[in-house]
């Protein structure tokens, strides 16, 4: 990355500049939101914000893994909806049944991810079109599972996971656990390093003996698992499910936006899950800020769009450093 050798804190900061920037922007915006919203700083306000943020953050994390390899998963939204529909049928009854239901939901997410992984790694299809096709299939299965909106979830389980422990939202703890227990060890493994290598240069990674296929497959499997978790969380928050193609599309599109705002390159090879989490929280807070601001509801979609467009346009800033115009073209 850097042209001259640097060490210690300077290097660490430069390496993590984009996630840090995303965090600062989020902190400022969330502070503003807390000031503007009418309820004062209460646990309930934090819990609601955390639940909605964690939901999008999980989907954004799911999207980040394939994007790091230079691919994309347009089916994450459909997997979320699929897991949502399944969870609304299964997460109920005795504690053992609930536990099995949760496992089944997460397993379904992994299975959906496995279909994508097979398509991309074994089938050698372009991720963008392959996941487009699989998302239609996943949506079809969701319709089978839940032809009409509704469903039931165990109340205690739902309120436990969407509530708070000593004032700290459980969903936030869940998010930290996923980052610390799943992503941190994985990103330090050979396969995890392989994600970045494959995204930087497929051919070089292969020549260097990186397990290219395994790295790429793990990205889509991981995306399936995280999207499954998001679907579960969605079910616990909403306490119902709906097989909605619009909702699936919104999740997918917002996840891509969150990934970009979080500083992960859509060309692959650089970025990370932590940035995407902040990207997701930024997106959510924009919506909340518009909600509490005095802006007329009719203007809100336009503001939201303009902010989104402006945020992604910040990606043009590195152009100012380009000396040779040839570098612009790929």
């Amino acid at each position: 990355m850097s042209a001259h050798p640097a060490s210690g804190i300077g290097l660490a900061v430069r390496h993590k500049l984009l996630p840090i920037l995303a965090f600062v922007i989020f902190a400022l915006m969330f502070g503003l939101y807390l000031l503007l919203q009418p309820h004062g700083i209460q646990t309930s306000v934090l819990v609601t914000a955390s639940n909605k943020g964690a939901l999008l953050a999980l989907v954004a994390m799911a999207q980040t893994l394939p994007v790091l390899t230079g691919g994309i998963d347009l089916s994450v939204g459909a997997i979320v909806v699929l897991a949502n529909c399944l969870a609304s049928n299964l997460v109920n009854g005795t504690p053992a049944q609930i536990g099995l239901g949760v496992l089944a939901v997460l397993g379904t997410g992994v299975l959906a991810g496995a279909v994508n992984a097979m398509a991309v790694v074994v089938g050698r299809l372009q991720p963008i079109v392959a996941t487009l096709a699989t998302s239609t299939m996943f949506y079809g299965v969701s319709l089978l599972l839940r032809p009409s909106p509704g469903g039931e979830v165990d109340d205690d389980f739902a309120s436990a996971l969407t509530g708070d422990v000593w004032g700290v939202p459980v969903s936030l703890l869940l998010l930290i656990a996923v980052l610390g227990l799943l992503w941190w060890p994985f990103s330090r493994s050979v396969t995890g390093r392989g994600l970045f290598a494959v995204g930087s240069s497929d051919a070089s990674a292969f020549m260097s003996g990186v397990p290219v296929g395994r790295a790429r497959a793990s990205a889509y499997l991981g995306a399936g698992l995280l999207a499954g978790m998001a679907g579960l969380l969605l079910t616990l928050i909403a306490e119902s499910a709906q097989a909605s193609a619009v909702q699936a599309g919104d999740f997918t599109l917002n996840s891509i936006a969150a990934v970009v705002i979080g500083g992960t390159s859509l060309f692959g090879g650089s970025g990370g899950l932590v940035g995407s989490v902040f990207g997701a929280f930024i997106l959510r807070t924009i919506g909340d800020l518009l909600f509490v601001s005095a802006a007329s509801p009719l203007w809100q979609p336009l503001f939201q769009g303009l902010i989104l467009l402006g945020a992604v346009s910040l990606g043009a800033l590195p152009l100012l450093r380009v000396r040779n115009r040839l570098e612009l073209f790929r």
Binding site: I256, L298, P301, F303, G305, L309, V312, S313, L319
Partner: peptide
């Protein structure tokens, strides 16, 4: 010119257009 990946830039433009049309038609 800005060299933003088309997938994300056109997505943003789509969101802006949606906002404009909501405004134009009153929702």
């Amino acid at each position: 010119i800005l060299r933003i990946p088309s997938m994300i830039f056109t997505l943003g433009v789509n969101a802006v257009l949606q906002g404009l049309m909501v405004l134009y038609t009153g929702g």
